[in-house]
Design a protein around this nucleic acid. Structure first.
Lengths: 147, 147
DNA sequence: CCCAATGGTGGGTGTCGACCTACTGAATCT
DNA sequence: AGATTCAGTAGGTCGACACCCACCATTGGG
């Protein structure tokens, strides 16, 4: 039985693509696990964040902003509303639209979720110094905006 | 109708966790699409890479190295074998084991797939300078080894 | 006033990855 | 030889995610 079976093939680690997808997935998974303890998934947090940052949205606008299907937004909002973190109100001007608003409970939930995300971040970025973390964040931001 | 509905919530982009998972997913998805043109998925490439870098493996060892379930390795190897990129041979010493070997066709396939990965990489990392790409790769490598 | 377009809703589909179980043939231990 | 462990295999489950279509209420244009 050979000794070294733990190492990832260098052919893969040589590819930034691979590292990106691997590390990203690790971050994603860990975060998802933490969020699950709060009974939410990643999209719930994204919706709460969008509402906190930009105020009330029509559901259609939420879908556009977050890049998800409108019919999926419905389901996420359903669950957030059931948890009292979000409020649905028919738009008085255009009664087809539903305006979604963050409740105080929702804002509190977002704070808690953000704390979880930060915790995961500390764990994932443990091997890096403070300065390197900033560096990484800057690089990722550039990529994110550009692509 | 508000003007700015395209921006991602700052609450999210402030989290390296978020950027990591988002950018990582983007890389993953793009790569998967390219690989699909060759009729393979990510695991196929990983297996080919492992065989190229470390030589023949028992299927069990492949599973251990890549961190996937042995029963899933079977399916991947099935497909690679059907494509003639890999050879199954019973280990003469321990006839329970199946030694999996890379064929020349497999090596050629890996080269092609690596080229695709590099292409995706260029696209994803387009906003970065050469030096920054190296920087990013170094940081990711540290994280990958550490976590 | 009728018709087309729009926002929201419910339901269903397909893929993918991770996982789990039962079974086989072979090796190993006693 | 018998019992136990191990490698591989076939099969199914489950959750997440993305996507799609049909339907309803409403709006706005001709």
């Amino acid at each position: 039985m050979s000794v070294s079976e733990n190492e990832t093939p260098p052919s893969l680690t040589a590819l930034t693509t691979y590292l990106l997808s691997k590390v990203g997935k690790s971050a994603r998974t860990r975060l998802a696990e933490r969020l699950a303890d709060h009974g939410v998934r990643l999209w719930h947090m994204a919706v709460l964040a969008a509402l906190a940052d930009f105020g009330p949205h029509a559901q259609r606008d939420l879908a556009a902003r977050l890049g998800i299907d409108p019919s999926d937004v419905v389901k996420v909002i359903d669950e957030l509303a059931r948890a009292g973190q979000v409020e649905r109100n028919r738009d008085t001007a255009d009664r087809r639209r539903v305006s979604v608003t963050l409740t105080p409970a929702g804002r509190a939930a977002l704070t808690a979720l953000t704390a979880e995300a930060t915790a995961v971040q500390d764990a994932v970025l443990a091997p890096l110094t403070e300065q390197e973390r900033v560096q990484l964040h800057t690089l990722l931001t550039r990529i994110h905006r550009g692509g």
